[in-house]
Structures are given as C-alpha cells and as structure tokens.
Amino acid sequence: MRSPFAPACPARQWRVAAVELGPSGPGAGELSRVLACQRAADLADRPGEPGICPAELRGLLVPPYCGRRVLFTATDVTGHVVGWARLGLYEAFHRDVAHAAITVHPAVRRCGVGSMLLDALAWAARTWHRSRLIVDAPRTRATEAFASRHGLFVSGRDLHSRLDLDGPELPHRLVAAVNPAAANPGGLPRQRRRHARPGPGDGFATLCWSGPCPDEFLSGYVSTLDYLHAAQPSGPLPAPSPADASAPDSDTNSRFEPGSSPGVTPFTSAEVRHREQSASRAGLREYTVCLIDQTTGRIAALSSAHTPDGLRGEQNETVVAPDYRGLGLAVRVKAQLIRGLLAAEPSLAILDTYNAVDNHRMLAVNRRLGFRPLDTHAAWTLTL
C-alpha cells in the first residue's frame, strides 16, 4: 500500500501549527492524529514493543501545575501529521526554562520536520521570556547529529531501566527486599551491606493507596515528597527534573517536572492535587506506598507508579526522608510498591523507570530488584 506521505520532502512543504491545551489536554480528534504519528515513531524506534496508548499520550499533554502546555503539529499538504512537539512552561518553578520533546514520523525523517518544530518551540519559548529550551530525547546517533546541527548541548542524563514483572526471580527478590530475614539469599548476588536492614516489625508501618492521597496523610506526604527539592544543589543551570541531580534515595521518571533552582518553591498540597487530577483526567491509574514511622507518625519513605493500560507501568518518585536514610528503606518501599502493583494489575508485564546516571544509590536499588538498563535519555539544552 502506498504511503500517504509524498516521497519528496522539501522543508517548505510542511506547515506547523500550535495550540495551547486546556486542563483535559487535546480533544479526541487532535489526540488521534498525534497518536498515529507517535505510534509510527514507536514502531520504528522500539520494534516489538507496544506503542503508546491514548491515556499515556494524554498524560504527557495536560498542562503542568501553574503553567502552560502547548502542542505543536507539523502537517503535510494533505493534512497528515508528520511530526509533533510538546512545550511545558512552568510558572511555579523554572520560570526561565521551557521544557519540550519532539517526535517525527519515520517516513519523513531528515527532511526538515524536526528543525521546523525546534524553531517553533524556540520562538514560543522566547515569546514567554524563557532563556533556555530543554528538549528531552534518547541519546542516539540521530539525536547527537541533530543537536550538533542546532547548537544544543547535554545538561543532564537519565538512565532508562526496565523491570520484567513476570521474571522468575522477581518474587524472591521482592521477599528479600521487604523481609530479608525470611528470604533465602541463595542464588542472588551477594552485596556488601554498610547498614543493617530493618525487618517488618521494626516500627515502620506500610500505608498504600490508589488514586489521590487520603486527606489525612496529604500534609505528611507533601513534606516527604519535597525532599526531592531539598536534596538537590542549586546552580546556574537548573536540572530539567529532580532525577537529574544526584539526590540520594530519590528517583523519578518525570523528566519535565521542576527541579532545583534559585527560584524554586516547595511541593504544595495544591500541586499534588493538580497532578492527581491531571492523571485521573488522562486515564492513568496511580498507586502509592509509604512507610510510616509508628513512633512519630512521619512518612519515612514513599514510592509511586502509574499504568495507562494495565500492561505497562512507569515508576514515579521514590523518596526517603534524610533522617531515615541508610536503613534500606528505598529498596523496601519500592518492593512493596511492586507487590501492590502486581496484586492490583495482574496483567502488568513491565515497569519502567528513569534515574539520573549519577544517582548511584537508586541505581543500586534498581539493580537489586532486577531492573535492567535499556538506554540513556539526555536533556538537550538550547540557549535562547
């Protein structure tokens, strides 16, 4: 069957349009057009893997807290979407930075579509008085060449890792992480332990929920979550997300969420509720596990994840409060979360996560649980 795209593709053939999205993201028709382009790109870049689903794509396109989300589409003369980009503009956090991602249909790559979208992103970012544009993309030969042509440089790197949830060793690994005394360590790689690992009866209680955080725990949840900010050093070039700083015992897959910068504000209850409502509108199912210090009532550790389709999951934040670090709580709370995910979503097959390449402690936690590295993503920065 003939491709709907013309074989010749001069740059002037394409038309780029932009629309600022409302709280629910794009409409059904616009989402369908962008989804077709993204699935074609997924098939070319990750053959054999399921493509993105509507809920997952909608989740990427809802506006951030106190900010804007702009959708750019590049179309050919027949109106087919040949590429698209998203732009995030934060007001509560990185007021001088715009965050973006670009996708080009494989049939028209190296034909100027990506360059046109980048130009449109940069123009919009300047219009909103941003001094830097950060574009997230896997680090490949193609993206390296594209970045070199357009003057982008790497300001952060994330390791993309995956856990196979039907792996034969996983149940034993989870038991060993949650209750080391009850697990036979034979067959697992031996690790040197600098700290004794507490057992389940050590004064920490497990709290789990799906969907929004219960009102009575919201304040404590926000307080612990905010250590994603507090653990990061400030600097002249803020990281594109909490994962891009080497904060101990914390990780996240949200590479466009705000990180540390001189003007950063702490997490707030309003921001958390906004994130929850956005996920619900998009159709994402979220799960959270916390470890509660029964003596003080504080949330010592937390971990969360979501799934858009019940087949694939994505790890969000894992945070351990500073007073409780060095006790093995990161691996324990993450293992509890995985067990809860498997119970609630029995068809879930894989769990992905993204961590800064220099976040060695969380990467060690991931290895202990059985995550394997897949590829590296870079935060490509353009000075405007």
Rank of each mutant, 00 (worst) to 15 (best):
M1W: 10
P4E: 14
P7N: 13
P7F: 12
A8C: 11
C9L: 13
P10K: 05
R12C: 06
R12A: 15
P23Y: 00
P23R: 02
E30C: 07
A36R: 09
C37Q: 10
P47A: 14
P50A: 14
E56T: 01
L57K: 05
L60V: 06
V62H: 01
P63F: 13
C66T: 05
R68H: 15
V70L: 12
T75H: 08
V77Y: 07
V77K: 06
H80Q: 03
V81I: 01
A92M: 08
D96G: 11
A100Q: 00
A101F: 13
I102G: 07
V104S: 02
R109N: 03
R109P: 00
R110Q: 04
G112R: 01
L118Y: 04
L121A: 08
L121T: 04
W128C: 10
R130C: 05
S131N: 06
R132N: 02
V135L: 11
V135I: 04
T143F: 02
F146W: 05
A147F: 05
S148E: 15
D158R: 07
L159I: 06
R162V: 14
L163V: 11
D164Y: 03
D164E: 14
L170A: 09
V178I: 15
N179E: 15
P180N: 08
A181S: 15
A182E: 10
A183P: 00
N184P: 13
N184C: 10
P185L: 10
G186M: 09
G186V: 10
L188A: 04
H195Y: 13
D202K: 14
D202P: 00
T206S: 13
E216P: 14
E216K: 11
F217Q: 09
G220Q: 12
V222Y: 13
V222I: 10
L225M: 12
H229N: 09
H229I: 12
A230P: 08
A231M: 11
Q232Y: 03
G235F: 01
P236E: 14
A239Y: 00
P242Y: 06
A243E: 11
D244A: 03
A245Q: 12
A245K: 07
S246P: 14
A247T: 14
P248F: 01
S250Q: 13
P258C: 12
G259P: 00
S260K: 03
P262S: 12
G263M: 02
G263Q: 10
V264A: 12
S269H: 06
E271K: 14
V272M: 12
H274K: 05
R275K: 06
S278D: 03
A279K: 01
Y287E: 15
C290R: 04
D293V: 09
Q294L: 11
I299V: 15
A301Q: 10
S304M: 13
S304Q: 15
Q315W: 08
N316Y: 08
N316G: 13
V320C: 08
A321Q: 07
D323H: 04
V333S: 03
K334E: 02
R339N: 11
G340F: 04
A343V: 11
P346C: 07
I350G: 09
L351H: 07
N355E: 06
A356H: 12
A356R: 11
M362R: 05
M362E: 06
V365D: 08
R368H: 06
F371M: 08
R372Q: 15
P373R: 01
D375R: 14
A378S: 10
W380L: 01
T381V: 15
T383E: 13
L384V: 07
